[in-house]
C-alpha cells in the first residue's frame, strides 16, 4: 500500500509550482543577500563589503525611510485594529443597515490604490481641496495635508486606513460571530452590562481576529509602496520616503546594489518585528 500511496500522491505534483516559486521567488531572495554587498549593474558586480548598508544608515535621505516605515506601519495597523474592532462590534449588532454598511466600508479595498491615491491627493489640495473647503465652512483653516513635512506621512497613513479598514472589519466580523452564545447568556445571568460584554467577552475572545489584523496590516504597512508613491513620491524633500520607495528611487538611479541592500534591510525589519510579534501573540491566544 505504501508504494501505491507514494505513487498516488507523487511529489511530481509539486514540481510545476515548485519550479516557478524556486526560480522567481526563492532565487532572488537568497541572491539578494549576496548582491547587497556589491556595486552592481546586472551584468558586472564588484564586492564592496558593508558599504551599501553603511550608506543606508549614514545618508539622511535614506535613513529617514527606516523611521518613516516604522511610524507608517505602527500608525496604520493600530488604527485598523481599533476601528476594525469598533465597527465589527457595531455591525454584528441588530442594526438593520449592517449589510449595506459592511459593503460600503469594504468596497474601497477592491479599488485600485493608484485611483484612490489620486482622488485623495486632490481632495487634500491645500486651497481648493474638498477637505479644507469643508473645514473653512466651519471657520477652520485646514493645513497643507501633503505639503507639510510634519503631516504628510500621517495624511497618507490616513488614506491607507480608509482604504484598508474594510479587511480588518470583515476579519473582526468573522471573529466576533464565532464567539459561542453561551458566553453572552452567562453574562446576562450574572447581570453584566454592555460595557462588560465588550471588555470581558468580545475583546479577549476575538483575539485570533486581532492577531490576524495586526500581522496582516503590520507586514502590509512595512512593505507599503504604491500609495505613498502616488500621493507624495516621498516628498516634500525626503520626508515621507519609506524603505520601499527608496528602493524604487535607487533602482531608477541605477544603484542596483544599494536598492538590493534596501530590500535586505526591509526583509530584516519584517523578520525582526513580525516573527516575534507572531510568536508572542500565539502564546497569548485563548481557546474558545
Amino acid at each position: 500500500m505504501n508504494g501505491v500511496f507514494k505513487r498516488t500522491y507523487s511529489y511530481w505534483f509539486l514540481l510545476p509550482a515548485g519550479i516557478i516559486y524556486l526560480l522567481i521567488f526563492l532565487t532572488p531572495t537568497i541572491s539578494s543577500f549576496f548582491f547587497s554587498f556589491t556595486r552592481w549593474d546586472l551584468s558586472d558586480w564588484q564586492y564592496i563589503g558593508f558599504e551599501n548598508f553603511r550608506m543606508f544608515f549614514r545618508e539622511q535621505s535614506l535613513a529617514i525611510g527606516f523611521r518613516n516605515t516604522l511610524i507608517y506601519a505602527v500608525v496604520t495597523s493600530s488604527l485598523k485594529v481599533v476601528l476594525g474592532l469598533l465597527l465589527g462590534v457595531l455591525l454584528t449588532s441588530k442594526l438593520r443597515s449592517k449589510h449595506f454598511l459592511r459593503s460600503i466600508i469594504f468596497f474601497p479595498t477592491l479599488v485600485s490604490t493608484i485611483a484612490i491615491g489620486i482622488a485623495f491627493s486632490m481632495m487634500m489640495h491645500p486651497t481648493e481641496g474638498l477637505i479644507n473647503s469643508a473645514l473653512s465652512v466651519v471657520g477652520i483653516t485646514g493645513p497643507d495635508w501633503l505639503g507639510n513635512p510634519k503631516l504628510a506621512l500621517l495624511s497618507v497613513a490616513f488614506v491607507d486606513v480608509w482604504k484598508g479598514v474594510g479587511i480588518a472589519l470583515v476579519i473582526y466580523i468573522a471573529g466576533i460571530l464565532s464567539i459561542p452564545e453561551d458566553y453572552y447568556e452567562a453574562l446576562q445571568i450574572d447581570g453584566g452590562t454592555g460595557w462588560n460584554k465588550f471588555w470581558s467577552i468580545i475583546v479577549p475572545l476575538s483575539r485570533p481576529a486581532t492577531h490576524s489584523v495586526i500581522i496582516l496590516s503590520f507586514i502590509g504597512g512595512l512593505r507599503s509602496f504604491d500609495l505613498i508613491w502616488t500621493m507624495t513620491k516621498g516628498g516634500p524633500g525626503f520626508t515621507t520616503d519609506l524603505i520601499a520607495s527608496i528602493i524604487y528611487k535607487q533602482y531608477q538611479g541605477g544603484f542596483y546594489g544599494l536598492a538590493t541592500a534596501g530590500n535586505v534591510i526591509l526583509f530584516l525589519v519584517v523578520a525582526a518585528l513580525a516573527v516575534p510579534l507572531n510568536l508572542y501573540m500565539n502564546r497569548k491566544e485563548v481557546d474558545l
Binding site: F25, T27, P28, S32, Y256, N263
Partner: peptide, 9 residues
C-alpha cells in the same frame, strides 16, 4: 511574509 527582492528578480 518576505518582501520580494526586486532587482534580483
Amino acid at each position: 511574509i518576505i518582501p520580494p527582492a526586486i532587482v534580483p528578480t
